[in-house]
Structures are given as structure tokens and as C-alpha cells.
Simulated scan of single mutants.
Amino acid sequence: MTESAETWLKSLNSLHTPLPSDFDGAKGHRESIESRLDFDPGGDRMFEIDSL
């Protein structure tokens, strides 16, 4: 099977392109983390250190 470099690159890129559902999941995850940080006054300190 012969394919052009452009076809191969588009195929490869499609594997690494997030789906709309991935963005929705990330948004929900972010909102969950933000609500926990708002609830726990010391949580942001621990979260920032852990993220480094």
C-alpha cells in the first residue's frame, strides 16, 4: 500500500487531535479542581507545589 507523505501526516495528526468530548471532559475536570481549591483554603498551596 502506497500513501503520500501528506496522507500519512494527516492520519498521524488525527490520532493526536483531541475530540470535542475530550475538551468537555477537561473542562469538567478543571471545574472540579477549582471548586475543591475554593473549598479548602490550604489546598491551592499544596496543588501548586505538586504541579511543579
Rank of each mutant, 00 (worst) to 15 (best):
M1L: 13
M1V: 14
T2M: 11
T2F: 10
E3N: 08
E3L: 14
S4T: 15
S4M: 05
A5R: 13
E6G: 11
T7V: 10
T7S: 11
T7P: 05
W8F: 11
W8A: 15
W8C: 10
L9W: 13
K10W: 08
K10H: 07
L12R: 12
L12M: 10
N13R: 09
N13M: 14
N13Y: 09
N13D: 09
L15S: 07
L15Q: 12
L15Y: 09
H16S: 15
H16I: 15
H16W: 10
H16Q: 14
T17L: 07
P18E: 04
P18Y: 01
P18A: 04
L19Y: 05
P20R: 01
S21I: 01
S21R: 02
D22L: 00
D22I: 05
D22M: 02
D22G: 00
F23I: 01
D24S: 04
D24E: 08
D24A: 07
D24C: 00
G25M: 04
G25F: 01
A26E: 00
K27I: 08
K27S: 05
G28H: 03
G28T: 01
H29Y: 08
H29M: 06
H29C: 05
R30C: 07
E31C: 03
S32M: 06
I33L: 04
I33G: 08
E34N: 06
E34D: 07
S35G: 05
S35L: 06
S35F: 00
R36P: 03
R36I: 04
R36K: 12
L37A: 00
L37N: 03
D38V: 08
D38K: 08
D40M: 07
D40C: 06
P41N: 06
P41M: 08
G43R: 00
G43S: 00
G43C: 01
G43H: 02
G43Y: 03
D44F: 06
D44T: 11
D44R: 14
D44I: 11
M46W: 11
M46P: 05
F47N: 04
E48F: 07
I49V: 12
I49M: 09
D50N: 10
D50K: 06
L52T: 13
L52K: 12
L52W: 08
